[in-house]
């Protein structure tokens, strides 16, 4: 990624997100300290941070684009490129490994026809291995955006893929938390 981001490409961000960025800048003790939450605002709307997003934050936060790029690439959840529609992130750390993460990943590879780290040719699914997701006693588990699926079995994974192919994100184990 080049620190000079004058690509001329259109960058569209909703007024709601722009207003939220102004709010965060006012709430945080220094402008620069609002960088992470502002990146999240852009991520949440667009799924990645395009060059225009960097320009916007250079302007709003008065930090250099080099600094923004540095932060953008340091944290694994920030993305500087568009992503697959569904990024399936399977935990391959120790507890999930003990509980069967490897056979589960093999199952996903077979079902999706891609290897770990790859995206399906239609750009619909990406399969990634990630470190501990904080669900160790509920493993094996995988994360899809803000949804965390736990206690996974091959059958459960098949059901998940089927729903996603229909364009439905099934209820995750942690979605209980979103209800009142």
């Amino acid at each position: 990624m080049s620190p000079s981001t004058d690509t001329g490409a259109a960058f569209e961000l909703s007024d709601v997100s722009r207003a939220r960025i102004d709010e965060l800048v006012a709430q945080y003790p220094t402008k620069a300290s609002a960088l992470m939450p502002c990146l999240w605002v852009i991520m949440d709307e667009l799924g990645w941070v395009p060059p225009g997003g960097i320009d916007l934050l250079v302007d709003k936060l008065q930090v250099t684009s080099a600094r923004i790029c540095e932060v953008l690439t340091f944290y694994t959840m920030f993305r500087s490129e568009p992503q697959a529609e569904y990024v399936l992130q399977v935990c391959h750390n120790i507890s999930c490994h003990i509980m069967g993460a490897r056979p589960l990943i093999a199952h996903l590879e077979k079902r999706l026809g891609v290897r770990l780290g790859e995206t399906t040719p239609d750009g619909k699914f990406a399969l990634e291995g990630v470190e501990c997701l904080g669900a160790c006693g509920h493993g094996p588990c995988l994360q899809l955006g803000r949804h965390l699926y736990e206690y996974l079995t091959p059958e459960k994974v098949d059901g998940l893929l089927e729903s996603l192919r229909r364009g439905e994100i099934p209820r995750a184990d942690t979605d209980r938390e979103l209800e009142d």
């Binding site: 750390n93 470190e131 501990c132 904080g134 509920h138």
Partner: peptide, 8 residues
């Protein structure tokens, strides 16, 4: 931040 493997 709770990221230590095994900790939840």
């Amino acid at each position: 931040d709770e990221s230590e493997p095994g900790t939840f």
